[in-house]
Nucleic acid binder design. Structure first.
Length: 824
RNA sequence: GCCGGGGUGGCGGAAUUGGCAGACGCGUCGGACUCAAAAUCCGAUGGGGCCUGCCCCCGUGCGGGUUCAAGUCCCGCCCCCGGCACCA
């Protein structure tokens, strides 16, 4: 029975020692370059899943690697601890959300510790702790004082299942992002953060984020959805007030043949002709009742209705019919659109369906558009026609001129519009940070004074989802006095969206116990921005956009000195089983607990890093885990068998026999490979390089007689192997390091350097090609010149044979690589 | 439809700047050790061919092209995954 790495005992031993020595604590300031390595903190749902393990394993390799490279590394962990699941669990199992959450935290903390992640636990935070949410509330007040937190009545997304409203970002394809229930519109008075005030900067500064994946930046760009265009006023026949439309194509203004209003547009009913009121009312009602799902998800048949009213074209004075139609959205632009069927596909379809005229105003080069035979709108560039004084101009030029003309006449103006909406942050739920606001009959909306924070979440509350905050039924909470006039007043009972809590946690880690401010400025400015952020791509818009918004705001009010929080972002892929995301309903969950129990932390980590590059999805494989366990056992046996030789050995000898020189070369080449791979997140190839190194070392031991081995070279190889393995398999590396007789932790060692001179082989194998096909190989000195390479190639018997009697027209030599004979 | 990513053995995945396709691992097959098995170790493993030579042909989604040389570059397609989707 071959000896096996006794991971249970080793893990237990080192967990205790590391904790005793406080190995991973990082001082606030140190005389070293800083590196802030952060992974997205988890929601304490109960147990870790493989996605967490992957996320944190990747982060831990980076943190340990940087630490060994001499950085002072901030690598913290905490809990995104407010949220709905706690309340749902409470309702289902009769356990209080507070208790449920803290139980989960203590279980998951234990799991993280078992996995050997190198967090500084002194900096642990939980967003549901009053010491934390006190500052969440404080930050809300900063927004409030600057007019960036406001209350308004608006149509909002209501999730019937979660019994709360949702932000736009939390509605995906018309359904609730968390429970997939179709959301329904509701008209409610709610709190918003004015993220739209930062739309332009959030967009512009994406260009600064060179360390972010393009994918995420594109998603944010689309989400912000900037369009440049114009507002144009169309006077309504027989009325004072006109209709303002937003268009990105003012160059097509002369092609307008009708106007369309969104069903929710306030003018719809006003403008509807007497005899059409009822019909229009029905239409609007039908559109309104349709769940958001079918309104926004997928294109659907265009429906519309003539209102029986007309407006006047601002430039031609023509009468233009006004319609109401389902394809116009009230939320975007002005909720009114000018219909240009010839040059907008949607308008084209609508016009064809309702028999509206199609008027061509842009002619493509070398083609004449005929409205009667067109099968699709022409949306590209061309020259204006039927456009009065603008005829003959290129449309891009005309665009500016038409807007300028409208501005001059007071008929319209330049306008930039964003798709981004203000962030709805009220939640009608219990388990969140209370919004620190008091309503007073005399004074109105009054912010809770900072010195009265936190507004504590009461413990004894019935948290049934009724559609109203459970806090409403808690008189001790609701009833208060007005901070301004002292009269009886009521507290705001809604709590904050948990994304608020997670929008600033990375600042708090720098000074988690600070009680005079959300953070110590000097510390925040020392550590921030985060050098490397790692997490799932599902947060591409939500968390990452909100955090950028928060950071910019805090920068503006002078609380932080960076205006982007995350310099580099790595979005890791999902963990799949049988090609599908692990989920309870599919029954394909692999539990980290069981794997760690059965194979140990090192094997679990190693497999998850080896099986795929970090950004890609990872297919779980039990056999693959076995393979990694086998590898670690091999390392264990190999290193232990060499301890007697290695201990006490000195430096490698000056002059080495070929096998020793080869081993030395392998050692240094491996350091080079692993270093470069980790730097560019090729963690899977870093692991395979270590495996190859192990194989090479084992082969050396097999092939080279003990008396021919150079002890110094062997020592260097073995120590290097352990050092390289340390970020990936920290427990085993630490144990072997100690068995080697080392006194100080392997995790406090410097990352091994490599000597480029030693990496180069004495001899290199040159590929010999004839007409681009490999026909042989030859060993030459690494220093061989192209002429020497060619000469050596020609001398190869087989090549000589193949070239005999042929005319060599050309010879291409790539130094150190190949010789290619081109024969006629 | 638009945007982003991808398509390489039986599987997960490697391949600087265009320079030996398939590293490493899994699986499979064969062998050693063993009474036997497990564990461990060794060897083989893209497909095909015959003249069994450490030889030849084919081979990185498909069709063209550039080049001495293409998984990699160019043109035209197909398929898969992710995101957005009536945004005027």
């Amino acid at each position: 029975m071959a000896e096996r790495y006794p991971f249970h005992a080793v893990e237990k031993k080192w967990r205790r020692r590391w904790e005793e020595e406080d190995l991973y604590a990082v001082p606030d300031f140190e005389d070293k370059p800083k590196y802030y390595c952060l992974e997205m903190f988890p929601y304490p749902s109960g147990k870790l899943h493989m996605g967490h393990v992957r996320n944190y394993a990747i982060g831990d390799v980076i943190a340990r690697f940087k630490r060994m490279q001499g950085y002072s590394v901030l690598h913290p962990m905490g809990w995104d601890a407010f949220g709905l699941p706690a309340e749902n669990a409470a309702i289902k199992h009769g356990i209080h959300p507070h208790d449920w959450t803290w139980q989960n935290i203590s279980f998951m903390r234990e799991q993280l510790k078992q996995l050997g992640f190198s967090y500084d636990w002194h900096r642990e935070i939980a967003t549901c702790h009053p010491d934390y949410y006190r500052w969440t509330q404080w930050l809300f007040l900063q927004f409030f004082h600057r007019g960036l937190a406001y209350r308004k009545k608006a149509p909002v997304n209501w999730c019937p299942s979660c019994a709360t409203v949702l932000a736009n970002e939390q509605v995906v394809g018309g359904v609730c992002e968390r429970c997939k229930t179709p959301v329904v519109p509701r008209e409610l008075e709610q709190w918003f953060l004015r993220i739209t005030a930062y739309a332009e900067r959030l967009l512009q500064d994406l260009d600064k984020l060179t360390g972010w994946p393009e994918k995420v930046k594109v998603m944010q760009r689309n989400w912000i959805g900037k369009s440049e265009g114009a507002l144009i006023n169309f006077p309504v026949v027989g009325r004072e007030e006109g209709i303002t439309v937003f268009t990105t194509r003012p160059d097509t203004l002369y092609g307008v043949t009708y106007l369309v209003l969104a069903p929710e547009h306030p003018l719809v009913m006003e403008l509807a002709a007497e005899d059409r009121r009822e019909e229009v009312g029905c239409f609007v009602e039908r559109a309104r009742l349709l769940p958001a799902l079918s309104r926004t998800a997928g294109e659907q048949e265009k429906e519309g209705l003539f209102l029986g009213a007309f407006c006047r074209h601002p430039l031609t004075g023509e009468d233009i019919p006004i319609y109401v139609a389902n394809y116009v959205l009230m939320e975007y632009g002005t909720g009114a659109v000018m219909g240009v069927p010839a040059h907008d596909q949607r308008d084209f379809e609508f016009a064809r369906k309702f028999g509206l005229p199609i008027k061509v105003v842009i002619q493509p080069p070398g083609e004449v558009l005929d409205p009667d035979t067109m099968t699709a709108a022409y949306v590209d560039e061309g020259v204006l026609v039927n456009s009065g004084p603008f005829d003959g101009k290129p449309n891009l030029q005309a665009m500016g001129e038409i807007v300028a003309y409208l501005e001059e006449k007071g008929l319209g103006k330049r306008q930039v519009t964003y798709r981004l909406r203000d962030w709805l942050i009220s939640r009608q739920r219990y388990w969140g940070a209370p919004i620190p606001i008091v309503y007073c009959d005399q004074c109105g909306i009054v912010p809770v004074p900072e010195e009265q924070l936190p507004v504590l979440l009461p413990y004894n509350v019935a948290f049934k989802p009724t559609g109203e905050s459970p806090l409403k039924d808690c008189p001790e909470f609701v009833n208060t006095t007005c901070p301004r006039c002292g009269a009886p007043a009521r507290r705001e009972t809604d709590t904050m969206d948990t994304f608020i809590c997670s929008s600033w946690y990375y600042f708090r880690y720098t000074s988690p116990k600070e009680d005079k401010a959300p953070w110590d400025k000097a510390k925040v400015n020392y550590w921030l921005p985060v050098d490397q952020y790692i997490g799932g791509v599902e947060h591409a818009i939500l968390h990452l956009l909100y955090s950028r918004f928060f950071t910019k705001f805090l920068y503006d009010i002078g609380l932080v000195s960076c205006d982007e929080p995350f310099t580099n972002l790595l979005t890791q892929g999902m963990v799949l089983k049988d090609g599908a995301k692990m989920s309870k309903s599919k029954g394909n969950i692999v539990s980290p607990e069981e794997i760690v129990e059965h194979y140990g932390a090192d094997t679990t980590r190693l497999f998850i890093l080896f099986a795929a590059p970090p950004e890609r999805d990872l297919e779980w494989s039990d056999e693959g885990v076995e393979g990694c366990a086998r590898f670690l056992n091999r390392v264990w046996r190999l290193v232990r068998s060499l301890i007697p030789v290695v201990q006490g050995a000195g430096e490698p000898a000056e002059s080495l026999s070929p096998p020793n020189r080869e081993l030395r070369r392998l050692t240094h080449r491996t350091v080079e490979r692993v270093t470069k791979d980790i730097e560019e997140f090729g963690l899977n190839t870093a692991v395979s390089a270590i495996m190859e190194f192990t194989n090479g070392l084992a082969r050396y031991c097999e092939e080279v007689k003990p008396e021919e081995r150079d002890p110094g070279t062997l020592r260097e190889a073995v120590e290097t192997l352990i050092l390289l393995l340390a970020p990936f398999a920290p427990y085993m590396a630490e144990e072997l390091w100690e068995q080697l007789g080392k006194k100080e932790s392997v995790h406090r060692q410097a990352w091994p350097p490599y000597d480029p001179k030693l990496v180069v082989a004495d001899q290199i194998e040159v590929v010999i090609q004839i007409n681009g096909k490999v026909r042989g190989k030859v060993l030459v000195a690494a220093t061989a010149t192209p002429a020497e390479m060619e000469e050596a190639a020609r001398r190869e018997p087989r090549i000589e044979q193949l070239l005999a009697g042929k005319e060599v027209r050309k010879v291409i030599t790539v130094p150190g690589k190949l010789v290619n004979f081109v024969v006629g």
